[in-house]
Write a protein that binds this DNA or RNA. Structure first.
Lengths: 253, 253
DNA sequence: ACAAAAGTGTTGCGGCTACACCCATGA
DNA sequence: TCATGGGTGTAGCCGCAACACTTTTGT
């Protein structure tokens, strides 16, 4: 039997093989250059009750069925990587990505990290305010916000991805105004300090912190409003400023 | 005609199609989940004659045949991403990756960035000392060290990747001992200062620089030797120290 | 009145810039 | 001995940690 074959219109050669059984004849096409499935995974962080939480989903299918994992999924055809991450964020939380922060974290492609075959995942780091609405329903068996120090034992290499995401988040609070991504549109200096204290797992002097963030150029802007939260003097409300880098930075103690 | 088909043993579904002509009958198999070819590209930097240079290769084949591009290539089957980058580095320069520095930069996968089809590239940033030997021959039509400010007009999206690599390198000199990756095993404080001045495109006070780098814990260690380079008092030789982070950092002016 | 949280003023320390100054060598 | 680059000392500035103190609310 002779078979002429042609691979797609793109000229990219795949490496896995396709087996076809036609009228009892088995045809195996084996190819040479490697391809991989591309997924995006999300390290999606928020702060609830002064504790840093990560969104986990409970896998409904194999592999790792029943185990907890970071939310993620396959990149669609003709879809940009960042767009895939933004889509996942919308699907999993319902928030518009522009309300929080979304950035590429790193890419993981160790052979064997997915038992189904070669899967390269581009991980993204996202921070969102504490969402009043519950997590939007997804095709997973379940989803929940988990405190990051109770998130060990994830599927795939997601423990590693989560650790990398946490370290990135901690480092970026120092020299970028990223902390505001955890806050609602209007927030107090105490809210912002709670973000830093929670992510860094330290305590900060409220007086010096206040001075630093209000004097850092373009970090936060007063809205003119104020609120009284519990007891005590009402606090001014701020919104995020236009700065993209912090001058001077807030260094970890 | 009926055809039962089965995709590989891995369970990963590809998205492109395979057309087979068997005894005059055309069979098109179209699949749903996207796959991509995975490449690694290298932003390989060095310093020659006090100018920052990047290694470029002249493409021998289409697409972008004849144009200059970053060195790179396909990730092999069962090869880790970092291992593929290290292999490219060895192939292009002959240096052992441990002699310099190699780290993941970012991943680029915009549809259409490669006219052959969906190609996702994981870019790596590498720094090596000025190599006495010329660049090892490769399968490309040519290779050369190009000053970074004369490197515009590269193939694919490599202008963007190079810009991202340069910004990463500049930022990392501040708070890591990365600058030593540009230096030979033994170097003087003036050599190290030249690295900073070249990458940052500034001038630094030699006296204050000397004090800072010799007092930064674990940054550089004296070897006991010294050299006289041109005129003037002989300079002590140093090797890189064990530090992985700089305390305190050297901030850009 | 008192507790509690917001916000300001002040002091002292440590790192940094700027620059004077000394050291060791080649020509 | 002079030019040149290597290396040290020091004064002043600036940012920051520490903390006393004032302001504004709820109870």
């Amino acid at each position: 039997m002779q078979a002429a074959f042609h691979v797609g219109h793109r000229g990219v050669l795949p490496s896995f093989f396709v087996t076809m059984t036609i009228k009892g004849v088995v045809i195996i096409v084996n190819m040479t250059i490697n391809v991989a499935a591309i997924t995006v995974d999300l390290v999606l962080l928020t702060i609830r009750q002064s504790a840093l939480h990560v969104l986990l989903i409970r896998r409904g299918i194999e592999p790792f069925g029943g185990q907890w994992a970071l939310p993620g999924g396959f990149v669609h055809d003709d879809e940009d990587l960042g767009a895939a991450a933004a889509r996942e964020l919308r699907e999993e939380t319902g928030v518009d990505p522009s309300a929080g922060h979304l950035e590429q974290l790193a890419t993981y492609g160790t052979p064997g990290r997915d038992p189904r075959g070669r899967v390269v995942t581009v991980a993204y780091l996202a921070m969102v305010p504490d969402l009043p609405s519950p997590v939007a329903g997804s095709d997973a068996a379940g989803a929940e916000w988990r405190p990051v120090d109770r998130a060990a034992g994830l599927a795939f290499d997601h423990d590693r991805i989560l650790a990398d995401g946490l370290e990135r988040a901690r480092a970026k609070l120092e020299y970028t105004p990223l902390a505001t991504a955890f806050c609602p549109p209007e927030f107090t200096v105490a809210d912002l300090r709670d973000v830093y204290e929670t992510v860094w797992r330290t305590t900060l002097d409220p007086r010096n912190f206040h001075r630093k963030v209000t004097s850092a150029d373009g970090f936060i802007e007063p809205t003119g409003h104020s609120v009284t939260r519990d007891r005590g003097r009402p606090a001014q409300l701020f919104r995020r400023g236009p700065a993209t880098l912090l001058h001077p930075p807030l260094l970890r103690p």
